[in-house]
Design a protein around this nucleic acid. Structure first.
Length: 568
RNA sequence: GCGCCUGUAGCUCAGUUGGAUAGAGCAACGGACUUCUAAUCCGUAGGUCACACGUUCGAGUCGUGUCAGGCGUACCA
């Protein structure tokens, strides 16, 4: 059993404390007969938008009104009467509007969060809500037929951040990249390189539309020619194409790996599609589903009865020419994921693949898994702009908006932050000029600047030797009581909840928005009040505060995979 | 045709799983650097939450329908 730490007091999570207070009051009211009907719903506590509505409010009186057959405001009065007093957290409670209960927190109740931030350090905001559940996040998984483009970058940023956040919240995370190193597109890749090679050798060729058009194909052909010409001389045409295919796929995959590395993304496992065939896993999966009747034969092909699980129609797994479809290997792959013991499997895909979800879900359900154990995050596309004008991107013409070019131009941090600055279901405009700008137009620097600026203040404080010991003491609440300081404390106290929510919904952008808000509060504070003053205890208190702000900024940036610079 | 996603300030987007008077950034306008980094801050202005019904104490949020845009709808991946 996990022992709950109570020594840091109820301020661990203010919202939960309020919830407990309200729920206990309702229980008590029922026990002593103030409320006739013995039902106690969950008390919903939320932070109102308007300051005059308190720090927290609850609608529980309105929710209970019809069941208790009492007017909401009357119920609110009863609840308040039954709240155990006196309390160090609550300053007062007001009843407002149709029956809201507005809770005003004692200012001094916010300060202990600083102690917790300093105590927990890099772990502040973490939780154990994942209960050690094993979760696999598969992302990017771009075909090794061309370099990564910005769209893949967005998927990489989201997948990696989601993995970070889940891990921080107590999940056991594995990151995986699925390599489509089998099938027709690899053959096409080989043919593309082969044709360019022929071209270099002076033969006149017709380069088909369905081949890969990009300039990188020529580069690979040139490399093959330089290093493997003698190997190829003894081969027939098909062998040459196969050689080119393998060589090119490996070459491109290395490029992908190095691009991802420079983007700060690493994987626990690179999973080869071809290995599913080599190890007989595709065949085994197909046999299993044939055996239990999910796969049947029609028109010379093998079909999976996905429509039984809500798909529009059944899907082919083996074509009448004997070749398996991509779906077939994906069935085997996902079966394998669950066989490896993951409690939950998360796939990050481009939104253009959304039509694929029902069939894959069908195959997973047919394997006896619960469909909540499988979740797909669909990433909408990225429009690459330069100073507001669209940058042409087309695989057909071979013009790539290559991820590595973007990283080289704007930097890893700016790219990642921008990718995570919107909900992934929303299309994203990525403006290269804006991403490079070192001004407040560019949110990444706005946030990073807080971290660097605080470091600078601390440095200066040390130089001037104005800083006392930065430790927590009860006097902090009398020292740190400017409105700007209380405002920051409230924002800091919210961080664990933001992380938790962003984990539950797998939405990294919530961290991004939170960091912007905290950064904004700090910049405002900085411009209004001095940290290093003539008053040693005030200076010490403020240093203690901003050190906590710096810690939370850093923790958030780490989850997003963005660095927290000490100077800028 | 059918399915999925989107529609909120001039632009780009948030909106805590149904709450009170709708929130940022950019752009616009007006201010603030002898100061711990101006890569910053303060202020002003900006709205029929695409539209119409419905559900209820209460709707940007849920339901139905309409309109507009994007994507998908293969024995491609």
């Amino acid at each position: 059993m996990i022992v709950k730490k109570r020594d840091r007091g109820a301020n661990d999570n203010m919202k939960k404390s309020i919830k407990n207070i309200v729920e206990n009051a309702v229980k008590k009211a029922i026990q002593n007969g103030d409320m006739p009907v013995p039902i106690s719903p969950d008390a919903e506590i939320e932070a109102p938008k308007i300051d005059s509505h308190g720090d927290f409010s609850s609608n529980i009186a309105m929710v209970m009104a019809s069941a208790q057959k009492m007017p909401p405001r009357k119920l609110a009065e009863i609840i308040i009467k039954n709240i155990e007093g006196p309390d160090t957290i609550l300053a007062r409670i007001e009843i407002a509007g149709p029956g809201f209960m507005n809770f005003f927190i004692n200012e001094a109740a916010w300060h202990p969060v600083l102690k917790k931030i300093h105590h927990d350090g890099d772990r502040f905001g973490s939780s154990s809500i994942g209960k050690g559940k094993r979760v696999q996040v598969e992302f990017v998984s771009a075909n090794p037929t061309g370099p990564l483009h910005v769209g893949h970058g967005r998927g990489a940023a989201v997948g990696d951040a989601v993995a970070n956040i889940l891990s921080f919240c107590g999940h056991d995370i594995k990151r995986e990249y699925y390599i489509n190193d089998s099938g027709r597109q690899i053959q096409t890749l080989g043919r593309s390189v082969f044709l360019r090679l022929q071209e270099f050798l002076g033969e006149s060729i017709v380069f088909p539309d369905d081949c890969y058009q990009g300039a990188y194909i020529k580069d690979i052909a040139r490399t093959v020619l330089e290093h493997h010409k003698t190997d190829l001389d003894v081969c027939n045409e098909q062998e040459k194409i196969t050689f080119c295919a393998t060589f090119a796929a490996q070459n491109i995959l290395e490029g992908i790996k190095s691009d991802l590395l420079s983007f700060g993304v690493t994987f626990d496992l690179w999973y080869s599609e071809q290995s599913l065939f080599d190890n007989g896993k595709v065949e085994a999966a197909l046999n299993e589903f044939k055996g239990n009747g999910h796969i049947y034969e029609k028109d010379g092909a093998l079909w999976f009865n996905t429509s039984r699980y809500g798909d529009e129609k059944d899907r082919v797994v083996v074509r009448n020419n004997g070749q398996t479809t991509y779906f077939a290997s994906d069935i085997a792959y996902h079966q394998d994921k669950f066989k490896r013991g993951f409690d939950k499997v998360v796939d990050v895909w481009g939104a253009d693949h959304h039509g694929y979800i029902p069939r894959l879900k069908a195959s997973i359900e047919a394997s006896g898994k619960d469909c909540d154990q499988f979740h797909v995050i669909l990433i909408q596309l990225v429009n690459l702009l330069r100073a507001g004008e669209p940058v042409a991107m087309s695989t057909r013409s071979g013009e790539f908006d290559a991820l590595c070019d973007v990283i080289n131009e704007v930097g890893k941090d700016a790219a990642r932050f921008i990718f995570l600055s919107r909900h992934y279901e929303s299309p994203l405009d990525f403006d290269l000029e804006l991403a490079k700008k070192k001004s407040n137009d560019n949110p990444v620097y706005y946030v990073q600047y807080v971290h660097a600026r605080i470091e600078s203040i601390i440095r200066k404080g040390k130089e001037e030797n104005v800083a006392g010991d930065m430790t927590y003491n009860d006097q902090l609440s009398t020292v740190l009581n400017a409105p700007e300081e209380i405002k920051m404390l409230k924002i800091l106290a919210r961080y664990p909840e933001v992380v938790e929510y962003s984990a539950i919904h797998m939405e990294p952008h919530r961290i991004t928005f939170y960091l912007m808000e905290l950064a904004s509060a700090f910049h405002g504070y900085y411009n209004k009040l001095r940290v290093l003053t003539d008053d040693p205890s005030l200076t010490s208190g403020r240093l203690y505060l901003i050190r906590a702000v710096q810690q939370v900024i850093k923790n958030g940036l780490v989850l997003l995979g963005v660095s927290a610079p000490l100077s800028m």
